[in-house]
Amino acid sequence: MKYVFALLEKELRYYFVSPIAYVVLTVFLIISGYFFYNILTIFIERSMFASLQSQQFGGPPPSIDVPALVSRNFFGVLSTVILFMLPMITMATFADEKRRGTMELLMTSPVTNLQVILGKFFASLIFFLVMLLPTLLYQIFILLYSSPRMAFGPIFSGYLGLLLLGGALIALGIFISTLTENQIVAASVTFGAFLILWVIDLSARSGGTRLQEVLSYLSILNHFEDFSKGVIDTSSLVIYASFIFLGLFLTFRSIESLRWRQ
């Protein structure tokens, strides 16, 4: 465990001395801020319009739950934005170690491959958390100023969902990073893989055939929707856990095979 911690510490240190970390953090903050502002404006306008209409025509008061809608849509946007951001977090994990020859240091030190992989996985996950941290501010605004008070549950489940989705994507990204020595190649392939997941999700939503049903069940993006609505489904937890396990398992095998291939 202390080895995992040492590796994790090194990874985090490495993130925060490289410019990439700050670029990713800044870009993510700008994009998420922009979308939060837009979503908020749209729904406030819509609800004002609806209440004006009801006043004019004397209908029942509008039943638009602005905070819930804002938070649900905001989580939806975040889940898409991280598809673009996470490749940049995972691209260097193994590719860079291979390129600079430090893989030899790790593999000739008394640490197991599993410890190395876990150290990197949790470091990326922690970095992802740090990236999400500022968006909590937006949620606090909603919590403070919404009336009726917004429920805390969906926010919690939304972040849990993001974390699981992020974990699954990171595991896949780390695996892809073991396949090359080139960070750019790793980032491109990872991004391509994420896009494929996205396309699978889109095609799963577009119809109701058997295949599409199966796809929608397997699509990790689809499962995120439940979380953003405040629903924590066991099957979603299982899907994410399996996906993370699969990604880390492939990473493990890839690292093992590195020894035999060289």
Partner: peptide, 27 residues
């Protein structure tokens, strides 16, 4: 103790933090 042909160093770390890391993973 192994020194490969190219020293396996992390360019963005300081000498101290690098040695600290290696000391940790070498137990």
């Amino acid at each position: 103790g192994y020194l490969p042909e190219n020293p396996p160093v992390y360019n963005e770390l300081t000498v101290d933090s690098y040695l600290d890391f290696v000391a940790k993973i070498k137990g």
